[in-house]
Simulated assay, not measured.
Amino acid sequence: MLNIGAHLTISKGYERAAKEALSIGANTFQFFTRNPRGAKAKALDLEDIENLDQICEKQSFLSLLAHAPYTYNFASEKEDTWVLAKTLLRDDLDRLQHFKSCQYIILHPGSYVNRSVDYGIHRIAEGLNDVLTGEENTMILLEGMSGKGTEVGGTFEELVQIIEKVKYSDRIGVCLDTCHLYSAGYDIVNSLEDVFLCFDRIIGLDRLKAIHLNDSMMALGSKKDRHAKIGEGTIGLDALVRFIKHPAVSGKPVLLETPNEVEGYASEIKLLKSHYEG
């Protein structure tokens, strides 16, 4: 069974988003914890969350994925930016304690800008150590990045260095994004098995908890993050189907972040299911 969903808006409530997910053939979905370009979060509606949890349980949804806003930058040398990231993550983790249906929050590691990658890695781990208590029921998933500019997380080595520096590392996992992987130089088109073997050797497949499934507008190793619709990019439909069929992905939530509206996600889910089950 393909466990698949898409990134949906929660502006009209979590229950509404769950029903929208069902309408497009999904059994999970992803949502931003707050304004993706800011810091403001809507007030929690506990009744809405309870209704969401009931739908997810009844429909056997796989865990939902919360996505942190892009304003988080745990690698920043700017103290106010770094403190803001810690403050918002702590608040998001506290808010997510109310959800039974959401086990993960996805985090872009951050960008070090004027320093070094080693500084960025240390800064991220230090920030996470300041936030985590070890009592959270939500796991933080570091997202593998495309390696553009000074962002951290474009290699498996960088991700594992962060994880190894976190005290409560059992609360840290990884989300792989197919567009980011390909742009970072991991050839999931021609050497998929080697990529997963590399991930297992460096990080461990037990850390892989979720997938962002996207085609790419850019070439292998471009270091540019440009998502494309499924089958309309340089990765291609066949390679993406092979990816989601791989045993390493089995049983994990697969989330679309393609440049689509809800109707487009419905078409992509239908397309992927037909090839996955065919």
Rank of each mutant, 00 (worst) to 15 (best):
F199Q: 01
M139T: 14
H275W: 15
K40W: 05
F156K: 08
S169H: 15
D187C: 02
N190A: 13
D187Q: 11
W82T: 06
E157M: 03
L213S: 00
A75H: 08
L256P: 07
M218F: 13
G236K: 04
N190Q: 15
G134C: 00
G25W: 00
K167N: 11
E136L: 02
E136N: 09
C56N: 01
H122N: 15
G120V: 04
D45Y: 00
D187A: 08
P253T: 04
L271M: 14
L128Q: 11
L192K: 07
A125L: 05
N27F: 00
V160W: 06
P36S: 07
T234P: 11
T33V: 13
T81I: 15
F74A: 11
G185P: 05
E193R: 10
N51I: 00
Y186C: 02
L65E: 06
V174H: 03
Q30K: 11
G110Q: 03
A125P: 11
E143G: 05
F32P: 08
D238A: 14
D130S: 10
Y276I: 11
I4W: 04
S274R: 13
D206W: 13
I10F: 00
K224C: 09
A210N: 01
L240W: 03
L159P: 11
A68K: 03
M218W: 02
A248T: 03
F31V: 01
P253H: 03
L237Q: 03
V117P: 10
L237W: 09
Y72T: 10
D130K: 04
I211L: 11
R171I: 11
I162T: 01
Y119D: 14
D215G: 06
G38R: 13
N190G: 15
T33M: 06
P36D: 08
V189T: 11
T178Q: 13
L181R: 05
S250A: 12
I188W: 10
N214V: 07
E151F: 12
Y14G: 00
A68E: 02
Q59P: 08
S222Y: 08
F74T: 03
F99M: 04
D53R: 00
P36A: 09
F99T: 01
N260E: 15
A266N: 09
H227C: 04
A68T: 08
L88H: 09
F31E: 10
I140A: 09
M145S: 07
Q59M: 11
L46Q: 12
I235Y: 05
L271F: 09
Q59Y: 13
K245C: 06
R123W: 03
E126F: 14
A219P: 07
S146N: 13
N35P: 10
I188V: 08
E47H: 03
H246F: 02
Y119A: 01
R115V: 07
E57P: 06
E261F: 05
F156D: 02
A219D: 14
V117M: 14
V152T: 14
N3C: 06
K42S: 13
L255H: 00
R242K: 13
S63I: 08
H275D: 06
A39Y: 14
Y104V: 02
A75N: 03
